[in-house]
Write a protein that binds this DNA or RNA. Sequence first.
DNA 1: TTGAATTATGTTAGCGCAAACATATTTGTT
DNA 2: AACAAATATGTTTGCGCTAACATAATTCAA
Lengths: 342, 342
Amino acid sequence: MTTAPKKNVTMQMIADELGISQMTVSRALNPKSKDYISPETREKIVRVADKLGYTPNLIAKSLVNNKTYTIGVVVPDLSYSFYPDVIKGINKIATDQDYQIILCITYEDFKNEEKALQTLMSMRVDGILLAQSQSVKDFSLYKKIIQSGLPLVFFDRYVLNLGASCVGSQDEQGAEEICNYLIKKGKKRIAHLSGPDALSVSLNRQKGYKKALKDNGIRFDKSLIIPSGFREDDGYQSMKQFLKEGKKLPEAIVSVNDASAIGAMTALKEQGYKIPEDLVIVGFSDDSRAKFSDINLTTVNVPAYEIGIKASEILIKKISTENSETENVFLETSLVIRNSTF
Amino acid sequence: MTTAPKKNVTMQMIADELGISQMTVSRALNPKSKDYISPETREKIVRVADKLGYTPNLIAKSLVNNKTYTIGVVVPDLSYSFYPDVIKGINKIATDQDYQIILCITYEDFKNEEKALQTLMSMRVDGILLAQSQSVKDFSLYKKIIQSGLPLVFFDRYVLNLGASCVGSQDEQGAEEICNYLIKKGKKRIAHLSGPDALSVSLNRQKGYKKALKDNGIRFDKSLIIPSGFREDDGYQSMKQFLKEGKKLPEAIVSVNDASAIGAMTALKEQGYKIPEDLVIVGFSDDSRAKFSDINLTTVNVPAYEIGIKASEILIKKISTENSETENVFLETSLVIRNSTF
DNA sequence: TTGAATTATGTTAGCGCAAACATATTTGTT
DNA sequence: AACAAATATGTTTGCGCTAACATAATTCAA
């Protein structure tokens, strides 16, 4: 037995049942302070609404109000603990303010990112939270969004001075700190497994790396920049390539993030190198896996949950305030020393 | 300088610009096979649409078509790797079919779950994927959803015979297998850290545990069922409580999931017990942390990504097929032996 | 050449709701 | 009693779009 799917109950149906106008139903179910409605009528309406199983149609409401109570959240991946943690933060604030999250995963592919953004615009989300994909090509779509007046807040991976607020971490300082730590430990020949040039995180972390070198009188050696990416496999492949070239091994490697560091460790171990005896390696992000003794990665903690909180707070403020200024917030990182640098 | 937020461009604006009717614009931008439109007109329209920065309004479309191309995904948590992995699977299928995901996190709270489901109904999502929260109270809302004709598919934590399809893992067999493994290793006094009674996963895993005992001629001892939950802290608290009661320590503990097992390990270690020397412990789920040597948890692998794939496939089939039958799918688990059971 | 088919466009209505503007009905005030 | 204010409800319109049904312009066969 299959029951024919019932059509959704509308205000008109409730009105018809009671022989009143649809507008009265609307007023009863969505009381505005300035509206008048008699308690008896309201009660009747609520009872019938309940009896018929009325569920308000947010689509229709959105069309009228030009407001959807949805925000688009675009992330590159869910594979490591970082973005799920950010999303938890976003969800906290969004839920408190009755916004729903539309989740898009780009898998680091700019094509997917562009498609997601287009769709979110068409869905008339009230705002967008975006962490760029690793393969960004250009910023024209970002500009279009910003210019259209749709609030956009970058998080983690951002573009400054585009008119969108940015929430991230103090990447440069974090990288500088961890490099200084390595140098203090006596390391001089330090390589950097870097992320894609187009991204703020990559550049800032690299900047911190260079600054630490400079401050400590170590000459920057371009050949020690190993181009990589954010995924474990990026680190693995890049390290493998580097080792194949037969260059002299560095004393330390500063990776652009944990996943990449873990990949690099795998490549190094495959070649029989021991960490931290033969060389030390550090990451960035404090992935949930970093603390385990098989990896035990010295890294820089980035407050993922707080980034989510802050980014969504700024977004929602932007949504509900007429002319809110763009603001950039960079949360503090902290050094987490573990055994990969003994 | 702050530019006034431009109103969104509509088809009517394009039509006005060209002195044609809005309907012609609609036809040009959303070609239906049966429609006629001259190539020149279409070209003009596309050009103007582009010039004005037209973005189709899916809200309006949804209202007309009674179809939103959204699916609601309700999960209890994002803290462990399991649900993010499921979501990756869901996202894969959803994206392929041009559906967007509306993500709701309940934090194991039934109140949040009910609110999320209500909202999703109001948003007129085309279907819902749900993993119940740990604190389910009753099924009336599920029934209401199903009766309303809104496709609902349970995943991971499900309720059979409610009219909704269910996608899960072979929990009973998995639990049985891991218990048999322990028994084969000579363990006889085996405790079970169990999940909430209201949930399928809990019951099935407990059923598998009991079956293994029975098949091996071990009498079931009710006092060895330790009521717990799915979160790390649940396992920690329950274990602590159990230890405080001063009962004789079991030789092995079968936990309802990895997080709970990890929590229990913490409690045990705090009391100076050594794993696996003093007692062995096993989990369920194969969380991304389970493989690390600090934990090294023998567990049952549950194919999270595949559950996401299967559940969303079934949901979308249900959405697009008139009278699709409910179907229940239980994916195979596999034993993962690590050092927590030496 | 004529009218039927084909092609190209226009008009109207309605999806479900709420803003804006009526119109009743009741209450309170003097 | 008379009128304004307060209260309660109704009507119309439009959000942006598409389905359904016109109508106009063109093509083509006989």
